[in-house]
């Protein structure tokens, strides 16, 4: 996990969460509804953040679809907490790609791109911009990335997947995902700094 998903305290925290998540999932698989609610609350925020990054405003609808499938297929799942993150992210991703196929024909209002232009007009330093990074701004930044970089960044940073898990979700090699995430972060940081100065 710690290999790329964040600084040390967060990684340790993530491991704790994963252990808790794994236990909750195991109980949920045996019918414990409260445990399933626990797992939902642990996983859903990251999942929703990932979905926001790829489907924008429809993320909550897509997340709902994904959760219906997750809840239905929970008995099929095998694995630990980190695996559950990967499994759910894979389901969410498939739902998101389905959604994108559905809506590809009709044009989508692009408030996000507009935000990119507005983003740091007043900013001074990158740090300040980072602190002020709102959800909308963050989405705008991520939306400006190439798709593979955006997904890699979102899966590893926001969902909290480790490299191999993110690679499996994306169907790519771990090295490719690692470098895509790195390039994405580099590009985001450069954008923030460039705009700030």
């Amino acid at each position: 996990m710690g290999e790329g998903t964040g600084d040390a305290p967060t990684a340790a925290h993530g491991r704790d969460r994963d252990a808790e998540l794994g236990a909750a999932v195991e109980r949920a698989r045996h019918g414990d509804e409260d445990a399933f609610a626990r797992a939902y609350r642990i996983v859903h925020p990251g999942l929703l953040g990932y979905l926001r990054g790829i489907v924008g405003e429809d993320a909550e609808d897509v997340a709902s679809e994904a959760w219906l499938e997750i809840a239905r297929d929970l008995g099929r799942f095998r694995g630990d907490g980190a695996g559950f993150r990967g499994w759910t992210a894979t389901i969410a991703r498939h739902r998101a790609l389905d959604h994108l196929r559905r809506v590809r024909s009709r044009p989508r209002p692009t408030g996000i791109e507009q935000d990119v232009l507005d983003l740091p007009a007043q900013g001074d330093a990158a740090g300040e911009a980072l602190d002020a990074l709102s959800t909308r701004h963050a989405l705008a930044l991520v939306a400006g990335l190439p798709r593979d970089q955006a997904e890699a960044v979102l899966l590893r940073v926001v969902v909290g997947l480790d490299g191999p898990t993110a690679a499996r979700v994306l169907g790519k090699r771990p090295g490719a995902v690692r470098s895509a995430a790195h390039r994405g972060l580099k590009r985001l940081a450069k954008q923030l700094k460039g705009r700030g100065r």
């Binding site: 290999e3 964040g6 040390a8 953040g49 991520v142 940073v157 909290g160 790195h182 985001l188």
Partner: peptide, 22 residues
């Protein structure tokens, strides 16, 4: 990719902005 690359703050911000909805 984390702090050793200098993106720790950025990751935290992204996580806070996207991964922890209200």
């Amino acid at each position: 990719m984390s702090d050793d690359h200098g993106y720790g703050a950025l990751e935290r911000s992204l996580r806070a902005a996207l991964g922890a909805p209200t």
